[in-house]
């Protein structure tokens, strides 16, 4: 897929060509992101977000999973600390992606790096890492991938929020379960065998018990920490790294 825009023998495409190349690579992901963004917009509108507020969230937070979690937790009055803290925890994975990606940002300027990280998503990170396997990561390519993602996500969210008010109660269509279904879909990508099963079991049991015992969304923190502790306990230094 990554060679279809490059002519044979042309090693250095122009920045514009590299940018287009990035947009083409991310196109299939955009087709999936658009309906998810629409869905998020309708859910946000159902929780009282204006179209502008929904757009602002997608434009500045720009992290789907945490946006779904936040809207799910949204009530009146807004639980500010809980939502911001949970957003931070859900997005902690970016730390690892950034730590990995920074090895490939040699060609980026200082401000370019800061903008690149602002636009970092699971998807653009994956495409960037894949590109870096075979050649140096070019800023034009990365921004083609990442800015196309941003444009589609923000536009879809805005459209969903504008349409959402007339769609009625999302739960009536099972849309409430779309949260869980999407997280299950993402979760499958993290599967690495039996050890993952132990982590997930600890996390699920910890979260379910905490949900019954505590109010609010602290079950996310309790379950997440339970899984992390099990992963640390199961680790053995003498085995092959995976």
């Amino acid at each position: 897929m990554s060679d279809r825009a490059a002519k044979p023998g042309t090693r250095r495409a122009s920045p514009a060509a590299a940018f287009r190349h990035g947009v083409l690579d991310i196109l299939p992901v955009l087709a999936a992101a658009a309906p998810i963004g629409l869905l998020w917009g309708t859910l946000a509108a159902a929780r009282g977000f204006s179209p502008f507020q929904a757009w602002l969230t997608s434009a500045t937070v720009f992290a789907g999973a945490s946006q779904f979690v936040a809207v799910d937790m949204w009530r009146d009055p807004v639980p500010f600390v809980l939502i911001v803290f949970t957003t931070f925890v859900v997005n902690l994975r970016h730390l690892l992606m950034g730590a990995s990606l920074q090895r490939h940002l040699d060609r980026f300027t200082g401000p370019g790096r800061l903008l690149a990280m602002f636009l970092l998503t699971d998807e653009s990170w994956a495409f960037a890492e894949r590109k870096a396997l075979s050649e140096a990561l070019r800023p034009a390519y990365y921004f083609g991938v990442a800015s196309a993602m941003w444009l589609v996500w923000t536009s879809a969210s805005l459209a969903g929020a504008m349409a959402g008010r007339s769609l009625g109660n999302p739960a009536a269509y099972g849309f409430d379960f779309a949260f869980s279904a999407m997280f299950i879909a993402i979760l499958a990508g993290f599967w690495k065998g039996r050890r993952t099963a132990a982590v997930l079991a600890a996390s699920a049991v910890g979260a379910a018990l905490a949900k019954l015992a505590l109010s609010g969304a602290w079950y996310i923190i309790v379950g997440g920490l339970a899984g992390v502790v099990v992963a640390a306990l199961l680790h053995r230094d003498d085995e092959a790294a995976t």
Binding site: L92, R93, F177, I184, V199, K211, V222, A231
Partner: peptide
């Protein structure tokens, strides 16, 4: 590293556990 690697799936599982289990 093992603990950090487990963070995303652990948090995702914690998110859905109440809906799925209770």
């Amino acid at each position: 590293k093992a603990a950090l690697d487990a963070l995303p799936p652990a948090v995702l599982m914690a998110l859905i556990a109440p809906t799925v289990l209770t």
